[in-house]
């Protein structure tokens, strides 16, 4: 077992884990943060995307021990329970950017990372290119692209990154 200490959604967490525990397993099964999904489990679909030190990573391809000492943000960390949604979440709701919802947490975490890196005025081509690591089997992506463009703009007028 290995002892790890990290910050998850702003809260300090300490735990003993088997070193082979994946970050996504740790989040879902130890911390019960089940918003982060396991889709393909082969680092292709992006349903498991979370932020580690502010950068989007695939938590199915990261060991929990590798997150020791780092700061992790999951979809649950974007907006507190009962508080208004994060502008990117709100944009997905407004623009019908989801159908079954399975890929949505990863899409939104990838989108927030994208806005941090490329700014608030995103072309369709940029969004599509940047979504190459996130798969959606329902929507055909059209409304996801619309949602991200709208969410990026909304984030410019919000104090929430």
């Amino acid at each position: 077992m290995a002892k790890i200490s990290l910050i998850v959604n702003g809260n300090p967490v300490t735990a003993n884990v088997d070193p082979r525990t994946l970050l996504v397993q740790f989040l879902r099964e130890h911390l019960r943060l089940t918003g982060t999904h396991v889709g393909c489990d082969t680092s292709q679909c992006g349903a498991c995307v979370v932020h580690v030190d502010g950068k989007a990573v695939k938590s199915c391809t990261t060991l929990a021990v590798m997150a020791d000492g780092h700061e992790v943000t999951t979809i649950e960390g974007l907006a507190a329970d009962g508080a208004p949604l994060h502008p990117m979440q709100e944009a997905f709701r407004e623009n019908h950017g989801l159908q079954c919802g399975f890929c949505t947490p990863g899409m939104i975490m990838t989108a927030v990372d994208l806005v941090k890196r490329k700014g608030h005025d995103l072309s369709d081509a940029t969004i599509r290119e940047e979504l190459e690591g996130n798969l959606c089997r329902c929507t055909g992506y059209q409304n996801i692209v619309l949602s991200i463009a709208a969410g990026a703009k909304a984030m410019a007028n919000s104090d929430r990154a």
Partner: peptide
């Protein structure tokens, strides 16, 4: 290489 999340690691 890969996609944005892969390139972060």
């Amino acid at each position: 290489i890969g996609d944005p999340a892969v390139r972060h690691k």
